[in-house]
Design a protein around this nucleic acid. Structure first.
Lengths: 189, 189
DNA sequence: ATTAGCCGACCATCTGGTCGGTAGTACAGA
DNA sequence: TCTGTACTACCGACCAGATGGTCGGCTAAT
């Protein structure tokens, strides 16, 4: 095989995707063997790219964080220049990722992997701080941001509690949260 | 040793508590040996009370769900007869459990254990349905309940993301959510 | 000739779980 | 009250299988 970067990068990607899938399905306890098989490489091949199990899960955590950030960026409506555009994108990104077949969101995936792997907590904390900072310049009242984003996070948890996601309820929650980003969310019920 | 129920019940409790602690710390992948040592019994002793690892984790899940329900019940203010009293208790119970030293809330603990253990999902789903049912007769607008409870759930996730809980931020979130249960939460910022 | 991606074989260790045994209690009968 | 029997909480030793990780080697592109 060529030592070209392309192949290395591609294999790493394949392994990372396989890891994400298997961890989401079977929890953070999955064996390297299973991940390797899912990725279509040997365990040795996997270990050639990630020197240990911990390094793989660490890379996975970072990758998930980066992927989610990219999804939020992609979800920003270019025509939207009103206050709360980033929060809106955040909500959309979360619910979009909830919609597809992956039953457990990446938030849960990470939380499961956390306790075992040493460096993951730091990655998550840094990420959380960055989101908080980004939201402060989004033009919405801090309390409103707090409620909306926490509720969105909680909704991702709900797919776990409530089992096979209830699409109608998810849609309702999503629209409710989006309306709150537009200042309409002052329910007096 | 006496075959008295007292001792059996006490040992089971000890093991369950030890399991909760170790799972919260090291994830659902903890070995029976570690749990047994934490509980001060031998692995065989543990297996005498819980016939398999899955049964232990299943019992743990059910116990956590029951414990939380009891905490909510205890958090209901007897003098409070206004609409939303149950939601208020729910919020209080979550934030109270977040406050103590156990860094990871039982919600997270369960989610981590879920993917591996077969029966846990059903337990969580049944529990979620019961809460939903209970909330419908609490006198608050469904949308309001949805937002508040999901935000409370999300806040428990946040202790994970944000690492060692930020007491001030938690307190602010808690008060914000409580005020929303009283209908004051119509922020127009 | 060198280098890098990848593999199969292998190993020490740990895993959940079984098995046979011990000790202490409760209770029956004398 | 003493004795024997049944029962139960609990333990140590053990096992088969799985696990993370190492090592030497093969192949192909540079």
């Amino acid at each position: 095989m060529p030592p070209r970067e392309r192949d290395t990068a591609r294999t790493r990607r394949t392994v990372l995707d396989a890891a994400a899938r298997t961890v989401a399905k079977q929890g953070a306890g999955v064996s390297l063997d299973v991940i390797a098989r899912e990725a279509g490489v040997s365990k040795s091949g996997l270990l050639h790219h990630f020197r240990s199990r911990d390094q793989l899960l660490l890379a996975l955590a970072q990758d998930q964080v980066d992927t989610f950030a990219a999804e939020v960026r992609a979800a920003v409506d270019p025509a939207d220049h009103a206050a709360g555009r980033l929060v809106r994108a955040y909500v959309k990104a979360i619910f979009d990722s909830l919609g597809d077949d992956t039953a457990i969101s990446e938030h849960l995936l990470l939380s499961a992997a956390l306790s075992t792997v040493p460096g993951v907590a730091e990655i998550l904390q840094r990420d959380a701080r960055q989101w908080e900072a980004a939201f402060t310049s989004d033009g919405l009242h801090p309390d409103r941001v707090l409620i909306i984003t926490k509720a969105a996070d909680g909704a991702s948890l709900a797919t776990l509690y409530e089992g096979g996601s209830n699409p109608a309820a998810l849609e309702r929650t999503r629209e409710l949260l989006l309306s709150m980003t537009r200042g309409e969310g002052s329910f007096t019920g």
